[in-house]
Amino acid sequence: MAVEEGGVARFQCLIQGVPKATITWERNRPALPPGDHRFTLLPAGILQITGVQRADVGSYRWVASNVANSRCSQEAQLAISVSAPKLYKEPMILSGPQNLTITVHQTAILECIQPASHCLLEPTRWALHRRGGDPGAGNWQPHDLGRLGETRRGLRVRCQPAWHPVCRTAQGILMVQAPPEFVQWPQSVSKPLGSHAIFTCVAQGVPEPHLIWLKNGKILVPSETIKLTHNNSTLLLQGLTVGDEAIY
């Protein structure tokens, strides 16, 4: 790729292996200089170089190693492009946020990359639209994306170059999944014959968990006297008999 001096370069390489490979990037064969904050390694095998300098020009490749073997990718060239200087340019998004599914407490990294010459006055603005609404309805809200790990709802995120009257946006969907956990457990009861018993079990998670009832370790099948309601969270046993005595 060729980018303007001071711009952003982005290389991506995908690899599979068991166990998971250790990844390093090289420029002109030696490893990239450690401690240079301009070089960022992102998930999914992405190398991002911000504030590109003439010293960054060269050949880049990815080296993946595990106990089985080491592999080197093909080389990609980074060059400096020259363009006529302009004070203003219509905004352009080189790489926008991708759809992403993670679990709670994981880190979500969302990209929105513009050419350096398009970021003269203000940085990119981020906004979100919570799940369940119409993303075209205009009710996007600015948000601190650093707090998204605390939510369990689906979010549609959008980045937008803020300063130019011409609007360019890119959006992706972030789904934050949560493992099932019980909010309410069924309580033991003692009932006379012929009466009825109710057990309640409530669980939450994303996606919404499916509840299955067991009787003495075997799946309980609904019948005329066994009723499951409220998305299987309530179990009703009617006309109790001796055979209903069990662990549920």
Rank of each mutant, 00 (worst) to 15 (best):
E90F: 00
N99M: 05
G45R: 08
P186R: 11
A127N: 13
V176L: 12
H210W: 12
F182G: 01
S188Q: 10
E90I: 00
A116E: 13
R71T: 09
D36E: 13
K215V: 08
T124N: 15
G35S: 08
Q187Y: 02
L148C: 11
Q141T: 13
P33W: 10
Q160S: 14
P209K: 11
P19G: 06
N66T: 13
A2T: 15
G243V: 13
A116G: 14
H230W: 07
Q177P: 03
G239M: 05
T225R: 15
R61H: 10
W126P: 00
P209M: 05
G138Q: 06
H37C: 08
P123Q: 14
V157W: 00
M175H: 09
T234C: 01
V52S: 01
I219T: 10
L214F: 15
P186V: 08
T50Y: 05
P142F: 07
T200G: 07
A64L: 02
P43V: 09
K191S: 02
P179I: 01
I93Y: 05
P97E: 05
L120M: 12
A31S: 10
A178G: 05
V166W: 06
E111D: 11
G96K: 09
L42D: 06
A162G: 10
V189T: 11
G194K: 01
R29E: 03
G35F: 11
L237V: 02
P186Q: 13
Q16N: 08
Q74G: 13
R158N: 03
L87T: 11
H118T: 10
E75Q: 07
W163C: 09
D244T: 09
C112E: 06
T229D: 14
A116C: 09
V104I: 14
R147E: 10
N231L: 14
C119W: 12
Q106T: 02
Q177A: 06
Q187W: 00
C159A: 12
P165L: 08
T241L: 03
C201H: 10
L47E: 00
E224L: 12
R71W: 14
L155S: 06
H129P: 00
S188N: 14
D134E: 10
H143I: 15
C159M: 12
V157L: 01
S73W: 07
S188T: 14
D134Y: 08
T169A: 10
F11K: 09
V176E: 01
S59P: 08
L121I: 11
L148H: 07
N69D: 10
P180E: 13
V104W: 03
L128K: 03
I226C: 03
V52M: 04
G217P: 07
P180V: 09
S233G: 07
